[in-house]
């Protein structure tokens, strides 16, 4: 029993790390720009598609391909922010509708270019390692490892880098930040780029494990929603806690009952949290 629980815990944390990568970008964008990015799943999908080209078609090294895919998504995200989203910063309702529009446009464009079918690409690593009776697939371990490195880097960036400090300042109070000489517009650009990069990274990392197609962004998007609501919209520590929580809850219910029940429970949890504590487990009400 203990072994089963540990196995569930490991599975949950592995999945949770991907959820956190996805949700951190989403919550960063909301915290700073007050925009709910409904297109977040599409940036995940673009990351997976970019990886398919760099890794499977051009035959680049896997790590180089992941890096390039995330960078491409970041640049594209910054372009989208500059051209389409800038005027909607702080206007929640219209901003949301705009990201919805961006989401369906990207999805349809990719479906037209690549076709609706889903393809798989070869996995960079295969096999399973066993640690004291706990099975860990190597590809999952790789994803988890990269996610840990990137998330630590992101934490250090926000904590110590001047640009990271500027982001946190704008998130807290953009007017006060502007008075200190920080240009909020530049911060919006960078935060949206970084948020999209994290989504693209998650997509690129998961691409060899799942399949790649225009509609693969929907499920990760839903998970990101659930995670940020659990943790509190705009709260970065909340995204970490929420991501791990969702990963563990899903792994547990999927093992003991089935995945549909796990999904239903997570949505039920979302409704409950929104009603009782809209700011989430870790967020502060504004």
């Amino acid at each position: 029993m203990l072994q089963l629980l540990t196995q569930i815990g490991v599975n949950g944390v592995m999945m949770g790390l991907v959820y956190i990568t996805m949700a951190l970008g989403f919550t960063l964008i909301f915290g700073i720009m007050r925009i709910v990015n409904f297109a977040h799943g599409e940036f995940y999908m673009l990351g997976a598609v970019a990886l398919m080209f760099f890794y499977a078609h051009f035959g680049l090294d896997y790590f180089v391909a992941v890096f390039l895919a995330a960078a491409c998504v970041a640049v594209f995200g910054m372009l989208v922010e500059r051209v389409l989203l800038r005027q909607f910063v702080g206007r929640e309702l219209n901003g949301m509708i705009m990201t919805l529009a961006i989401a369906i446009t990207i999805k349809a464009a990719v479906a037209i270019v690549l076709g609706p079918q889903e393809v798989s690409i070869p996995r960079p690593v295969t096999g399973v390692i066993t640690l004291g009776g706990i099975l860990v697939p190597n590809d999952r371990l790789l994803v988890g490892g990269v996610a840990v490195v990137v998330l630590s880097g992101f934490y250090l960036f926000l904590r110590f880098a001047p640009a990271g400090l500027a982001m946190r300042a704008v998130a807290q109070d953009w007017e006060a930040a502007a008075l200190q000489g920080i240009r909020p517009q530049r911060v919006y650009l960078w935060s949206f780029g970084i948020g999209c990069m994290l989504a693209g990274l998650a997509g690129a990392l998961m691409a060899p494990i799942y399949t790649i197609g225009p509609y693969i962004g929907t499920v990760p998007m839903l998970k990101a929603f659930i995670v940020v609501i659990l943790g509190g919209l705009g709260s970065l520590p909340g995204a970490v806690v929420g991501g791990l929580l969702l990963g563990l809850v899903e792994a547990g219910f999927a093992t003991f009952i089935n995945t549909t029940v796990a999904t239903m429970i997570s949505f039920g949890l979302v409704v409950a949290i929104l009603l009782v504590r809209p700011a989430g487990l870790m967020g502060n009400a504004r």
Binding site: L84, I97, M98, L100, A101, I102, A103, I104, T105, I106, K107, A108, A109, A111, I112
Partner: peptide, 11 residues
Amino acid sequence: YQVLLYGLVLI
């Protein structure tokens, strides 16, 4: 194409 058109019109 229809969805693309919807998206572009909306944007």
